[in-house]
């Protein structure tokens, strides 16, 4: 415990870097997922082709490979050089965004057909229909999977330590080589990762409840803070990956 208390500021700054990369990466992934996901539901074959190309490419390449490519191959190909942190955020955002796009596509396609027919009967434009009817319903459905993806993203940020960003993992490795306390150095980092993950899970669950309330659905498992801590039922579709 003393080990951890002494080095808490160091670990905290590492956790700050990890959290920053997670949040900016998540924002990038979210924008990409929404844009590409909606493209994938359109009737236009070009739009769908672009969406398929993006998801298959960036889902297919591991984030670590993508990050190394950006950090080391780009400077060789072009006169520009990416800041390691920027390369990491871009690689993670593109990778998780591709997973997210599939989630958005699935959720939008799962909105009942009758809802679309009703908007057509009401003579709504495509933009109006998507914005005020389709997305609010799809949003409630995509949130749980988005939650899993944010956790995956947070865990994946550990790779930035390999290209020299001083995140939580890097701090743990530095402390290990400085003190030789392997178990303490790494378990401190693991516990902090776990705490960050739990905080993110809680945040997503709050969003889920709000989305469901807006659709007039009662939250599952009752209300109150205790119900939030209870995990929602798992479906057999295989998580966020």
């Amino acid at each position: 415990m003393e080990f951890f208390i002494d080095r808490f500021p160091l670990y905290l700054s590492g956790a700050g870097v990890t959290l920053t990369i997670t949040l900016i990466g998540a924002a990038l992934a979210f924008v990409l997922a929404m844009a590409v996901g909606v493209l994938g539901t359109m009737r236009n074959p070009v739009a769908r082709g672009v969406a398929t190309f993006y998801t298959e490419t960036f889902r297919g390449i591991a984030a670590l490979v993508l990050m190394y490519w950006m950090a080391f191959a780009i400077p060789q190909l072009t006169p520009y050089e990416f800041d390691p942190m920027f390369a990491a955020i871009l690689a993670l955002g593109l990778n998780i965004g591709a997973y997210g796009a599939e989630v958005v596509r699935g959720a939008v396609n799962a909105v009942p057909r009758a809802q679309i027919e009703a908007t057509i009967a009401l003579n709504m434009s495509w933009a109006r229909r998507t914005w005020s009817v389709v997305l609010p319903q799809a949003w409630a459905q995509m949130l749980p999977t988005f939650g899993n993806l944010v956790i995956e993203l947070m865990k994946a940020t550990a790779i930035v330590s390999l290209i020299g960003v001083t995140d939580l993992t890097r701090v743990a490795q530095e402390q290990r080589s400085a003190t030789g306390e392997t178990i303490l150095a790494f378990s401190s980092a693991l516990v902090m990762y776990f705490v960050i993950a739990q905080a993110l899970i809680l945040g997503v669950r709050l969003l889920e409840r709000r989305a469901n309330r807006r659709l007039g659905r009662a939250p599952e498992g009752g209300s109150g803070l205790l119900a939030l801590l209870r995990p929602p039922p798992v479906t057999a579709t295989g998580g966020g990956r």
């Binding site: 865990k155 994946a156 550990a158 993992t169 743990a172 392997t182 790494f186 990762y193 739990q198």
Partner: peptide, 18 residues
């Protein structure tokens, strides 16, 4: 749950060093 919520990379390096 703990294993699932923490990075694989850290677990790998941890076990490898130990």
């Amino acid at each position: 749950e703990f294993i699932r919520c923490t990075p694989l990379l850290v677990q790998l390096v941890f076990v490898f060093t130990l």
